[in-house]
Write a protein that binds this DNA or RNA. Structure first.
Lengths: 207, 207
DNA sequence: GTCTATATTTCGATAGAC
DNA sequence: GTCTATCGAAATATAGAC
């Protein structure tokens, strides 16, 4: 599969592919796909459905993407960009301090890009299948890197579990943020989550 | 769809359908499905694949289940049984104390039935699609009930977020428990998780 | 309870016109 | 860049023999 297709994103010469709509067709496809993949799942969403929403036919999508999986990968890479940045703020060490630094960044990004994170959670099977079927040369997955850090045997078991719980807590809360926590402002939600992370990664916690 | 098919689970008269193998064919189908749905996802797993593993053909499955979705529903109900029990230990009130009681039960059940929980997490889109397409008369979903409790406006926002984080922490840790935390005994893991839950649901936490 | 064989449908993907 | 038309593959599901 060709992830980055040699597609003329701006054949008319406009900078970011801003076409008739302000967003390139490619981006509009991704936006609709994100919405449908999140609500129905990747497999239950057909290319015809995506095309219908955009007002053209299935075949047109193939001008912008080499395959359906290519759309999935593009969305995955969108998320990956945010994750990579947060990961780079952390070293490779497994200290609670650096983990807290990672989550601090992640909380803000999740709240700003929550649709992307929720999509990612609801389609884990499809995305991991993607990683299996391709030889992701040089594409180190976020999940793998997190696992690597959490596997560090030199860190006490309790600490590592606390680290896993911290990220689980943030992700878990995010899933309710749309509807159940809809009335809580993002700022406040972020503050609460940072507090949770801090309490989980502090020596005295957990008994 | 007929969720509970009128199938002769024990046509030869044996109590729990124990056939040639000690488990009824229906249960064996569910076990293989659980394994494949978890590793590959529901959509990427074909009935042929399940049948092959069991040594017979696809058509035989239709004797035991009315449809592929019926298998998914049966597995969902397996989990639902455990969740229901834990939920009943909690009232309908949204106090942190009752929430802690819920999670206490849930931790043990998750550790014992972790395959079932992981399956559920990796196939959320498919399962929710199931809920949409059927008129689940009387089938109140666990997720819905949790949302209802977390929506209780009479409870402070911070407390509700902490409750969401607590369940997220437990579920999040569970996902690493297979490989990354494989060397940690279940007893110890359970204790750590109970500690995490307690710290999250205590007044002083979170700053 | 399991088999063979087949019906039916849906979808991803391609070719080529415009 | 989008269209029409179509191919081919795969999967669910059914019918009926044994």
């Amino acid at each position: 599969m060709t992830v980055a297709q040699d597609v003329p994103s701006a054949p008319t010469g406009d900078p970011a592919g801003a076409g008739t709509d302000g967003a390139s067709t490619r981006e509009r496809i991704l936006d609709i796909a994100l919405e449908l993949f999140s609500s129905q799942g990747y497999d239950k969403t057909s290319l015809r459905e995506i095309a219908d929403r955009l007002g053209f036919t299935k075949a047109a999508i193939y001008y912008h993407f080499a395959s359906k999986a290519d759309i999935l990968m593009a969305l995955h890479l969108r998320l990956h960009e945010f994750g990579r940045e947060a990961l780079d703020a952390m070293g490779d060490d497994a200290s609670p301090a650096s983990w807290a630094r990672l989550l601090d960044r992640l909380i803000d990004q999740m709240l700003q890009q929550r649709a992307l994170f929720i999509f990612h959670e609801r389609n884990r099977a499809a995305i991991e299948e993607l990683h299996r079927s391709e030889h992701d040369a040089g594409h180190e997955d976020i999940q793998d890197r997190l696992r690597k850090v959490l596997s560090d045997g030199s860190v006490p078991a309790e600490t590592r579990v606390h680290m896993a719980c911290a990220i689980g807590a943030v992700v878990g809360a995010l899933e309710f943020s749309g509807d159940v926590f809809g009335s809580i402002p993002d700022d406040q939600l972020g503050d609460i989550l940072r507090g949770v992370v801090a309490s989980l990664l502090t020596e005295s916690s957990g008994g």
